[in-house]
């Protein structure tokens, strides 16, 4: 049985365990009746998955986005790209482990990859600071983006952070300044930028590597100005209204697209990215290739103009 079970996935996990048991039995007995039963159970499993995943609430999607079995940036790099060379450091005294980056090839095409990185166990989670970057992470990211610009290669960023790190040293070293500078410089970077929210997209910490020609969200991720828990604690002064906050914030991929704040959604396999990694990589790779192909022939000045124009039109207000 899976180690980490979301409450709404209990039926799925129980059935999965039953199927696994049956398969063991089948291996021992080689019985046709058992094989038929397994096939029936697998069909039922797909049906339950489809039902559960068709009706996920905002808060449930937030939970899926944080599932520890989801692929992280380095997993995507390993399975989608080749020849990855990780590049380290901001050249100002630090190397942030919560943001990774470097050159890699996408079907032979060199690209600059940058992404938040979370850990997979207690030790690596701490090492990666839970995907919460310090200013040096944003500064490293900018250094790599400028390098991509110099050599005329597209930039791909993968966003997965619970927020920029709210620490004492982060403030001393200018967390706000580091993010702000990235927003300004990414707006005018003269190469294509494709950003994908692969998990959590929390606020300035996400946007700090998120100003792109294409901003995509995977189906079961969230992106907003604040996490539902923090929103609940500020507006309701308790942590109990996170479900309501998740709905109110309109933070899911479908709502973000409907509000014109992102450019597309990358489908996830049935049951979420954590249920089928191989299929997830395939889906992400196809979308990355499609968008880069669309962008690569646009003149750099035109690209920048279109990018600025896109962000300039975001906002709802009334006049008069």
């Amino acid at each position: 049985m899976a180690e980490y079970v979301l409450d709404f996935e209990k039926d799925i996990v129980v059935l999965e365990a039953q199927i696994a048991k049956m398969k063991e039995k089948e291996g021992a007995d080689d019985n046709e009746a058992i094989a038929r039963e397994i096939a029936g159970m697998e069909k039922r499993l797909d049906k339950i998955r489809a039902e559960v995943y068709a009706n996920l609430s905002g808060w449930q999607k937030v939970q899926v986005s944080r599932h520890p079995d989801r692929p992280y940036t380095l997993d995507y790099i390993e399975h989608i790209f080749t020849d990855f060379i990780e590049l380290h450091g901001d050249r100002l005294g630090f190397d942030d482990k919560a943001i990774v980056g470097g050159w890699a090839k996408l079907d032979g095409q060199p690209v600059m990859l940058i992404g938040h990185q979370k850990g997979k166990n207690t030790k690596t989670r701490q090492y990666r600071n839970f995907g919460m970057a310090n200013p040096e992470g944003y500064r490293k990211a900018l250094r790599l983006m400028k390098m991509a610009e110099k050599f005329d290669r597209p930039v791909i960023t993968m966003i997965d952070t619970p927020g920029a790190y709210p620490g004492l040293e982060a403030e001393e070293r200018g967390q706000g300044e580091a993010i702000a500078r990235n927003l300004r410089e990414m707006a005018v970077l003269k190469v294509p930028i494709v950003c994908v929210v692969i998990g959590e997209g929390a606020s300035g910490g996400a946007l700090g590597i998120g100003v792109g020609d294409r901003v995509l969200m995977m189906e079961n991720t969230w992106y907003s100005v604040i996490s539902p828990e923090s929103c609940s604690s500020i507006l309701w002064r308790n942590w109990d209204n996170k479900e309501i906050a998740a709905e109110a914030l309109n933070l899911t991929a479908d709502k973000m697209l409907a509000n014109g704040l992102i450019d597309g959604i990358i489908k996830e396999p049935l049951g979420g990215a954590h249920a089928d990694h191989e299929k997830t990589y395939k889906l992400v790779k196809a979308e990355l290739k499609r968008h880069i192909k669309e962008l690569k022939d646009i003149e750099p000045d035109q690209l920048v103009m279109l990018r600025i124009d896109k962000f300039s039109h975001m906002g709802h207000f009334q006049e008069g």
Partner: peptide, 12 residues
Amino acid sequence: AAFSLMQMAKTS
């Protein structure tokens, strides 16, 4: 929410 977040990108 995210409309507010994107004002950061827009002004920058």
